[in-house]
Each structure stands twice: as C-alpha cells, then as structure tokens.
Design a binder for these strands. Structure first.
Length: 524
RNA sequence: GCUCCCGUAGUCUAGUCCGGUCAAGGAUUCCGCGCCUUCGACGCGGUAACGUGGGUUCGAAUCCCGCCGGGAGCACCA
C-alpha cells in the first residue's frame, strides 16, 4: 500500500486526474475561475437613478489630502452609478481658535475637486446660511427639547460624564426661548451660554448626552466678518441643511457616526424623514505621517514648498509627483467601504501608478553626486550613441545622447568598483583606477573593449551637454545631479523614469546655464 | 471608564448577508531566477492567512456565544 501511495504522490496532478477519470471517478476539475478581486460597493439604500443627491463638506482650513480622497471618490462613484448630483458645501462655520476658516482654501479645494474629476453641481457656503438655522432652533425649543445652558465648558463636560443635569435644564419652552433671544441679542459673553439639546442624561453613550447645538463666537469670519455671534455646531447645521438642500444620502467617514444619531434625533423630534447614512473607516498612508495641522504651520512659515510640498501628501502634491488621478482613485477605491481602519504603505499606490505609466514612460540617464571620469583611448565613433527610450518597448523610439570620452558617474556606483573593469551600460567597457580623485577632480579611466560582458553595468551621463538636475524628494530633500543632454528639452509636466532612480515629473522648462532642471520625484 | 465599530498571509483586499463549488482568489511586500536599470524598472517562479475557545451542523472563513486584540467617538472643532 505504501508503495502505491508513494507512486501516486510522485505523479503530477493532471496525471492523477486522468487515472481517476479512467477508473470512473469524478470528471476533471475545471480550472478554477478567478474570483472577483475588486471590492463591492453595495447599492445605496433606497437610491434610484436620477434622484440621488450627495454632498461634500470640507472644512476650508487646508487643501484636500489623500485621506479626503476617500470622500471624494466614493461620493463620485455613487454619483456616477445613479446619475446623481454632488453639492460642494463648505463647512465654514466659525470653527475655533485652532481651526480657522481661510479664504484661500475655497478656491484651492474647489480646484482639488475638479482635478480629481469631481465637478460639483452647485457650491454652497455654510456661512451664508447662518440665519436659516435660527428658525429651526426655535422649532426645537418650542418642542421643549432645548435649553440655554450657562455652565462653563468644563463643568458642562463633567456633568455630562456623570449624567448630572444643570439647573437650566428645567427651563420650559417659553423660558428657553427668552434665553435664546438673549443669546441672539448680545446679552451673553462668548463662552457664557450655549443652546443644548435635551436628550437623555442617562444615555449609555456619554458622548450623546445633551449635546451643544449653538454657541457664541466673536471670531472674525473671512466671508461674513462678525455679522453673526451665534453659530450652529456641525450636527445641527447638517440636521437643517441635509433637509433644506435635499440631500438623499450622506456618505462620510466613521468618525462622524455619532453625528448621524444626533441628526436623526432632531429629525424624529420634528417629525421629518432625513437622508440615510453610510460610513467608511479611517484610511492612512503609512508614509503620510504628517498631520494636516502640522503641514499648515510649515507651509505658513515657508519651511514647506507650499500646499503641493511632497511632505503634505495633499492630492495636489501627488499630482506634482506625477501620480495620476486615475491611480489615486483606483488605489482609494480598492479599500471598498470597509468600516475597518486601514493603514497601507505608499508602495501600493506607487504600484497602481506604475501599472499606468511604466509602459509609456521614456527612460533617461541621471546620476546623483557625480564624479567626472575621463576615458583614455576612447573610440572616436563612440562620441555619441543611440539609445532606446524604453528597454521593452521599441515603439517608443530612440534618442541620440552624447557619450565619451568624458562621463559622469555616480560616486556611490564607483566606490565599490575601483580598480576593476566595469561596463558603461549600453556602451563600452572601461578599466577604473584604484582610487577616487580629490574633490572636484577627474577620474582617469581606460577604454578596454566594446563587447558586452557580464560585468557590473553602470549608469553614466556623457559630459557633453550634461545639465544640472535638481530632484525634489518625498521628504522635501533636494538631490542635485547631472542629467543627459536630451533632458534640455524636457517640458513641464513631462514624466520620465530616471533609470535606477525612479519616476520623476518635470516642474518647469530648463532655463539653461547653471540653473538646474527642476524635477519632482514620484516613486521608484 | 462608557458607547459604537472592526478582526482573512508582512500589508490591503475577494469570499461572510443566502454554510458545501474555498485543500481560500487578487494586489503589494518579501525571496529566487531572468534582463545592457546594480537592491531599485520590467518579466517569470516561489513563500505566506480565515485572532482564540466553545457551540450548532453530515459539513463553518461563512451561523451562535464567550474570550482576546485593534480602532473611532466621549470639544462651546469639523
């Protein structure tokens, strides 16, 4: 028996299946069709084509970063599925001392949406709508479901944690209305009074107990100045606007789930049927550790190179790096609608982008930290050479690049090969001397042969016409180096692969002379 | 601490609603090989997972319960 087992185990599975079939066994198993690999986006509850209205609600205190992409692309996906509408509603209520509204972001954010292919059907500003919220507050007060609380913030918080009611909670609707009018009428200083919703102080979720609906603020709003002192909190403003703007579905991050409950509570109170809510978990790119507020400081101080500095991981910084919107969208949608929080390495995004650009991106030579190498006995006919633009795609053509006898090679490549023969990639072989020249000096090498040999192949840049190139890296660092002469005609926005370095995107035309060609590193 | 949510390979994800077709699919990482891009682009190949304990069932990644682990919320921010 064991010999039979041993024999059968040694056979390929196809042979086994043939034998089995011959014995009257089950038929060969067909090759298993591969399962779908893209996440499912479930249909929206109660959604019908042409009737879906969605909203994007960014707070204008920065440009959109990769985390906002999830909001952007998921909303867009459903808008496309249902031929729906998307409203861009700037959530520019007064914010706080730490979280200020700034005018410049309105256009910047709209630009981010457009660049992502999300063209809003209409744009609204919460700050224009403040007076709309007051009558709604009065409806809630009239229901006896709100009161003006005069506890200091700290006491309020503590009482909430312990389920303790403050004396004002006993206000009847008339008293509450009087107090509310005092709030509106400047009778209270900032921080002295708030309008609170009456929920249940024993609610199991401490976060839900008697939330604040309106508060006072003297901050100067960039659009409406100090016209209003009484500002709604996010939940209340949305309880109103989701109705007034006819929103059918609210798709947002799970950090806002408690706000759903608030909105529903208010709607139930008023006998209104509101939109449904859908959430997703937090998406973090491992490398994008920079907090939004942190990059804000650095941009304002000039330490960062504006809102598209690679360190911000803003959507516009990805574009600057030559990462296509298409790749960003596919990357983000690959996480589906999961409520689980995901932390994903940027490499996954890079792979997505590579898939799209590798086959059509031409190769160029660049060496960082170059050492000048002069080759003795260099053949005259190798003064220039025709090189393929892409190793695997002949249809991308060739370019003619200046070659010897003088080259630049990367110090890092040279150091471990001193004293040995190396091959200048796609060109010829040379013998390296045993030691590096002193700083700024020239390395004297000697031509050996042109036959392709299996020896280390090094990247080179012909000295003639070589131009200075500055590579802006992901950490904001600058890597100076030399690029091959053909780079002189590079156009802004053009993407190249610097061989063995990675994909880069050109910032501006080269101005000639010693000013470097500026490129931004995308990814390996 | 309280509330809610989530656990499939190193990472992300398909499958879970409606148990068998899943000896678990894809992507990425990693490893090996190939290549006139060296560790680095590209091509080929390989390793690698149902958190845990119980229950239901002929049969559980899928249903039920406990445990463990992780995250978010608990602002007069959004």
């Amino acid at each position: 028996m064991s010999t039979v087992v041993a024999e059968l185990n040694g056979l390929p599975s196809s042979e086994l299946e043939d034998r089995l079939a011959a014995l009257g066994g089950p038929e060969r198993t067909a090759a298993r069709p591969s399962l779908p690999s893209t996440p499912e986006f479930a249909d929206l509850p109660g959604a019908s084509p042409g009737k879906v209205v969605l909203r994007l609600a960014p707070f204008p205190s920065g440009t959109l970063h990769i985390g906002h992409g999830r909001m952007l692309f998921i909303n867009q996906l459903y808008r496309e599925r249902y031929s729906g509408r998307i409203l861009l509603v700037f959530d520019d209520t007064i914010g706080s001392e730490e979280k200020r509204v700034e005018t410049e972001f309105f256009d910047l954010i709209l630009g981010d949406c457009e660049a992502a292919g999300v063209h809003p059907d209409a744009v609204f500003y919460k700050s224009d709508r403040v007076p709309n919220f007051y009558p709604w507050a009065e409806r809630v007060i009239a229901k006896g479901a709100a009161y003006v609380c005069r506890c200091p913030a700290e006491l309020l918080r503590e009482n909430r944690a312990h389920g303790v009611a403050c004396p004002e909670r006993a206000q009847n609707p008339g008293e509450a209305m009087d107090e509310w009018n005092k709030m509106l009428g400047n009778s209270y200083a900032v921080g002295e009074a708030v309008l609170r919703l009456k929920t249940d102080l024993q609610d199991p979720d401490p976060a839900f107990r008697d939330r604040v609906l309106f508060r006072l603020s003297d901050l100067d709003h960039p659009r409406v100045g100090t016209r209003y002192r009484v500002w709604p909190m996010l939940e209340f403003s949305w309880a109103v606007d989701d109705i007034e703007l006819g929103i059918t579905h609210v798709l947002r991050g799970k950090d806002l789930v408690m706000e759903d409950r608030m909105q529903r509570y208010i709607w139930d109170l008023l006998g209104i049927h509101g939109p449904s809510f859908v959430h997703w978990g937090i998406l973090r790119v491992r490398e994008a550790k920079v907090a939004k507020s942190k990059s804000y400081r650095e941009i304002k101080s000039g330490e960062f190179d504006g809102w598209s500095d690679p360190r911000t991981w803003s959507l516009r910084s990805l574009d600057r790096r030559g990462i296509t919107n298409d790749a960003v969208r596919a990357f983000i949608l690959s996480f589906g609608m999961s409520l689980a929080d995901v932390e994903v390495p940027a490499e996954t995004l890079y792979a997505e982008n590579r898939k799209r650009i590798d086959a059509s991106t031409v190769r160029r030579a660049f060496v960082a930290d170059p050492v000048r190498v002069e080759v003795d006995a260099w053949p005259e006919d190798l003064a220039s050479v025709s090189l393929p633009n892409h190793p695997d795609r002949a249809e991308l053509g060739t370019r003619v690049a200046p070659a010897g006898p003088v080259f630049h090679l990367a110090r890092r490549d040279l150091e471990p090969r001193l004293g040995s023969e190396i091959r200048l990639k796609d060109l010829a072989n040379i013998q390296l001397p045993a030691a590096l020249p002193s700083a700024g000096g020239t390395l004297a090498a000697r031509f050996t042969s042109r036959a392709n040999q299996r020896i280390p192949r090094l990247q080179w840049v012909g000295a003639e016409g070589a131009l200075p190139v500055d590579v802006l890296g992901i950490e904001g660092e600058h890597t100076p180096g030399l690029g091959e002469a053909t780079l002189a005609s590079a156009r802004p926005g053009e993407v190249f692969q610097f061989e063995r370095v990675g994909f880069v995107r050109v910032e501006k035309d080269w101005t000639g002379g010693s000013a470097p060609l500026r490129v931004v590193f995308g990814h390996p």
